Amino acid sequence: MPRFFQIALTSLVSLAIAGCFLETMDASYATAQEVISSGYLEKGWIPKWLPSSATDIRETHNIDSNVSELSFSVPDRSSIALPEDCKPVGYAGTVQAYIRRRWWPSEQELATSYLFFQCPADAADYAFVGISKSGKRVLHWRTYAR
């Protein structure tokens, strides 16, 4: 095969593979005010109930599947106001997050250090919130059954 065709074929395969990964986007913000000022809250990947005291906000989502994961810190549990229709659920009643970045807790940490709520799903089959037992770290994720 001529060198030109090898380069062209390699380039096409690389672009096709890269396209699969470009559908997953990441964002991080120091404060909730940064999220609001950027207009990112209006895009829907971060829930509107994000506390104004939230810091160290990390979010990832896949635009093709609508799965998403969000993690943020709050000063204490009293600053978290979940929607009324979020109901407590045990860890066994959750569905694992799909993307799972390095900042996402391990399954062991989730099982032992978080309390969970199932909330109405708006973009995927399931939506969950995990609140650390210390009340200072909050997770939110949308996912599908596997």
Rank of each mutant, 00 (worst) to 15 (best):
L50K: 08
P51S: 13
P51A: 13
S52C: 14
S52F: 09
S52H: 12
S52D: 12
S52T: 09
S52P: 03
S52V: 13
S53R: 03
T55N: 11
D56Y: 11
I57T: 06
I57C: 02
I57P: 05
I57S: 02
R58E: 15
R58L: 15
R58Y: 09
R58N: 10
E59T: 13
E59C: 12
E59P: 05
T60W: 00
H61N: 13
N62P: 00
I63L: 11
I63N: 15
S65H: 07
N66I: 04
V67W: 00
V67C: 00
S68F: 00
S68L: 00
S68M: 02
E69N: 01
L70T: 03
L70Y: 01
L70P: 02
L70S: 05
S71A: 07
S71E: 08
S73E: 05
S73M: 06
S73H: 06
S73N: 09
V74D: 06
V74E: 04
V74M: 06
P75W: 00
D76F: 07
D76R: 14
D76M: 09
R77K: 15
R77W: 01
R77Y: 04
S78W: 03
S78G: 15
S79V: 05
S79H: 07
I80S: 09
A81N: 15
A81V: 14
L82K: 12
L82G: 11
P83S: 14
P83C: 10
P83K: 07
E84S: 14
E84I: 13
E84P: 12
D85Q: 15
C86F: 08
C86W: 05
C86E: 03
P88A: 15
P88D: 12
P88H: 05
P88V: 06
V89K: 13
V89T: 11
V89F: 11
V89E: 15
G90I: 03
G90C: 02
G90V: 08
Y91S: 07
A92P: 00
A92F: 02
A92G: 05
G93R: 06
G93M: 01
G93S: 08
G93A: 02
G93E: 07
T94R: 03
V95I: 05
Q96S: 12
Q96G: 14
Q96I: 03
Q96E: 12
Q96V: 05
Q96N: 12
Q96M: 11
Q96Y: 09
A97W: 01
I99S: 01
I99M: 01
I99F: 00
R100H: 01
R100T: 01
R100S: 10
R101T: 10
R102M: 09
R102W: 09
R102Q: 15
R102I: 09
R102T: 12
R102C: 03
W103P: 04
W103S: 08
W103A: 05
W103Q: 06
P105S: 15
S106R: 09
E107I: 13
E107T: 11
E107A: 14
E107M: 13
Q108V: 04
Q108M: 13
E109K: 10
L110E: 12
